[in-house]
Design a protein around this nucleic acid. Structure first.
Lengths: 248, 248
DNA sequence: TGGAGCCGTCCCGAATCCTTACGGACCGAG
DNA sequence: CTCGGTCCGTAAGGATTCGGGACGGCTCCA
């Protein structure tokens, strides 16, 4: 679990800011709100948040200007909220150096994922000792979330971004079955789009972590439901024991 | 039972809300109903449910407004019911903030899965240590609802979806007899269709959980009524266990 | 400006599962 | 003893799901 952080949310729409705040608080963060540019800059000055979530469409005030002023305070990470289709904002935002951006309409889960990711990167860059690299293990599979590296039996795996996220999530919830839609929401952060995307990534991940991808023993498919990462049976390690119910 | 939770269902259509309530009760939850926005908010205030299932199409009251007011009470998980066919963008916008949403028409399995996983995540976020895998046991039969896995004496069973649902339901109500029609309605979610479907699935389930499927001792048939999952008599098994006057 | 890697989507074959139908066996009542 | 209702076992058709292959778009990098 990520540690808590101070987050400043800047948006003039109370509906959006309330929802965003609720979600971030649920993740264990402390949240402050600002509805306009000046108060945002002032709050940033006084409270020195660990992360700023900034809507670019502020009334009567240029969001970019707010961004520049906040950035002068120091290397505070910023996530920008932009409207879909506004390629201009997005490009400009990234050029300015925003750590990440999220296009509206967005799912709160997506924002939470981005926020945690940005915070993690920021802490790492800041040289925070990073208490004992966050490790997760199942069978001979090991993942270092902070170091963004996965190994099997000590051998590093060449996972892509999505594959890593998927494996990290499954390793965090071993033995639990998830539907494709759930995985789409929890790993991808959104749930529109084709569910077969999940299927394809599971297949690609199996190619890299399973000994026999055609007969997966770790990343099992639960028919009619979805997928599950099985913790290894504490019993036989290499014995040719019948696969119990895994058959078919 | 750790799975049970207080659920508030908000829908103006009694047909829908009753069906939803039935689905949730079959999962072992306690359900309250509210037909309009104000009473929903009031009930949420008074009863502090663990989960809210909220229909967005409330008459004369914006469902999203209800959501915001309920959310102010605290981090209550919310599942939204939306009608299919609404513009995708609208759904996305409304989804803003919901823990999950289900599009109508929905299947009972769908709602059950979502409700359970939302509750699980909420408990997890609330600091309740996970690990509390939802288990149900009778005799040497054990079922892990979150992992969608059933075992007998520790050995995994290869159950199909329906078989799993059926066994899960019976394990939630041991010692209680159900007619085929009841099982059809409570497990399948509809009350039309051939009752022999239930018969066939019971038979297949017996093949997998009974030691001698020809003489079932766990999944007993109550003649003229239906079926019942018997908790094992810890004492003598061969006794002439008169099933009382259950006959007709 | 190419080229490689990653991601998301689509298509189709194969495997699996659900439902229904049918014949025979069993139970209880008159 | 006979009969009507009920239950069990088998089989087949239809529907759904899963897995593999492949394609185009996109980004990043040389």
């Amino acid at each position: 679990m990520e540690t808590s952080a101070d987050v400043l949310v800047v948006d003039d729409d109370p509906t959006v800011s309330e929802v965003v705040a609720a979600y971030l608080r649920r993740c264990g963060h402390r949240v402050r709100l600002a509805a306009d540019g000046p108060s945002a800059v002032a709050t940033a000055h006084l409270k020195r948040p660990d992360l700023v979530v900034l809507d670019l469409m502020l009334p009567g005030f240029d969001g970019f200007e707010v961004y520049r002023r906040i950035r002068r305070l120091g290397p505070v990470p910023v996530i920008m909220l932009t409207a879909r289709g506004e390629e201009h904002d997005r490009i400009l935002g990234l050029e300015l150096g925003a750590d990440d951006y999220v296009t509206k309409p967005f799912s709160p889960r997506e924002l939470s994922l981005r926020a945690n990711s940005v915070l993690r990167r920021a802490r790492q860059a800041a040289g925070v000792p990073e208490q004992a690299a966050e490790l997760r293990r199942v069978a001979d599979l090991e993942i270092d979330v902070t170091g963004h590296q996965a190994t099997r039996g000590g051998v590093p795996l060449a996972l892509t971004g999505r594959e890593f996220d998927l494996l990290a999530f499954l390793l965090a919830h071993p033995g639990q079955a998830f539907t494709r839609t759930e995985l789409m929401r929890l790993v991808w952060g959104w749930d529109y789009g084709d569910q077969s995307t999940v299927t394809v990534h599971v297949r690609r991940l199996r190619e890299k972590i399973e000994q026999d991808p055609a007969q997966p023993r770790l990343l099992v498919t639960v028919w009619g439901v979805g997928y599950r990462l099985d913790p290894p049976d504490p019993q036989e390690p290499g014995a040719a024991s019948a696969d119990g119910g895994a058959g078919r």
